[in-house]
Design a protein around this nucleic acid. Structure first.
Lengths: 228, 228
DNA sequence: CGCTATATTGTTATCCTGACAATAGAAACG
DNA sequence: CGTTTCTATTGTCAGGATAACAATATAGCG
């Protein structure tokens, strides 16, 4: 490592890719920027890391401040860091990106430094430009989510505390973007120990045969995995 | 994102976990620190990112400056970032860690800011303390390598341009720390399209039946994978 | 009551795997 | 030289996982 004379001041930010399911469609949480640069454009929630703050708490704080979402995410992991010299037109800025997954939530509320916050389906965000390199970060987050569905229990983080196998299947279908065979999926989920645990209750109300309710099991890694 | 008044100066460094195989044993490249803090202790090669330098070039430059290794790694990917407020006793420092994999190389030479550089087997480094949180970074790099062997062609990055299936198997055995069935491994490697391509040549000299020589194929992802 | 929709369970041919046996071809040994 | 030894490569086979698809279960609805 070099001497202090090598010092050059970097800005350090955290940005969060928050994914959820709304009406069986994958949505991402975006804010409308309330300050320059990229004022008024869509961006991932995020902001500067404070002097004595660790990275993960900074991600949660910015999420809360900019969108009003203060629930502890069911799932939060570091995604990657982005540090191209020109990624911020003003300063040399490094961003550490996080991936968070939440069950369906009420509408977010705009907060500090954001004029608006809301859920956007991937389809409606496909056309629109995102601030900075947030398009790259979003794509990396989606790819990470797609991969993690295979061999971890990430899918349960999209669900309410109690859920049916069909609801879990719709998570996979939304994230992977293709239909899955209900019968085979049902068997594979129940064959993976610790993925889901039956609650004994059944879901009433819906059409068709009532379904068993499950909660997330203890397993974080799936054996066998649910292959794409 | 916040206003400029939020600015707080961060130091930003890159650290590299360089793995290779020497005598069929997994080794990691470490330097003996030549400056404070942790003067004289073992550390991953790395250092400060320059003002207009992207992260990956910074990792390669520090690797070259501190160890004399200027070969383009056969494999280089970002690992994770580390930003605990107290990870550097002097300043608030964020480190972006990279994982690199190389075939067997000559001894490294100590360079700037490093009193010595050398290959250390994981066994001999198990006891010794590493500077900063480099123990955590090393463990994360090893776990990433173990996982990537399963479903990518990472293992070929440990090998010379031409290699035998047995040499490839010894990569897996060294990284996973357990023996594999030679027959089953042989079949699985050849059954994964694009993993290896035959060169037509055979390796002479060794004991036993001569083996076919292969080169790395085009595939980056393995279908089917080589499961642990 | 029959229809429809969804959940759940079966069936089956195929593929992949691990354990282990068998064969191939060179060097080492006596 | 013939035999042994060592490693590479191929073969066998039972068990588990998969996909495609069929069959059954059980609710709401007209």
């Amino acid at each position: 490592m070099a001497l202090q004379s090598d010092f050059f001041p970097f800005y350090v930010t955290v940005d969060v890719v928050v994914l959820t399911l709304r009406e069986d469609v994958l949505h991402v949480l975006l804010v409308e920027r309330g300050s320059k640069p990229y004022l008024g454009e869509l961006a991932l929630p995020g902001g500067f890391v404070q002097p004595t703050e660790d990275l993960e708490p900074a991600a949660l704080r910015e999420l809360r401040e900019e969108t009003g979402i203060s629930l502890r995410p069911r799932y939060l992991e570091q995604l990657s860091s982005y540090g191209a010299p020109d990624r911020d037109p003003r300063h040399r800025t490094i961003s550490i990106a996080y991936l968070a997954v939440l069950p369906r939530l009420p509408e977010p509320t705009a907060g500090t430094d954001a004029r608006a916050a809301g859920w956007y389906s991937l389809e409606e965000v496909a056309d629109r430009a995102l601030a900075f390199d947030h398009r790259d970060i979003l794509e990396d987050g989606l790819e990470r989510a797609r991969a993690k569905l295979e061999y971890t229990s990430l899918a349960t983080a999209f669900c309410d505390p109690e859920f049916t196998v069909a609801q879990l299947r719709r998570v996979y279908e939304a994230v992977w973007g293709r239909p899955l065979d209900p019968g085979n999926f049902h068997r594979k989920v129940l064959a993976s120990p610790g993925f889901v645990e039956p609650t004994g209750r059944v879901r009433s109300g819906g059409r068709g045969r009532p379904s068993q309710l499950y909660r997330a099991g203890e397993a974080a890694v799936l054996h066998p995995p649910v292959l794409r």
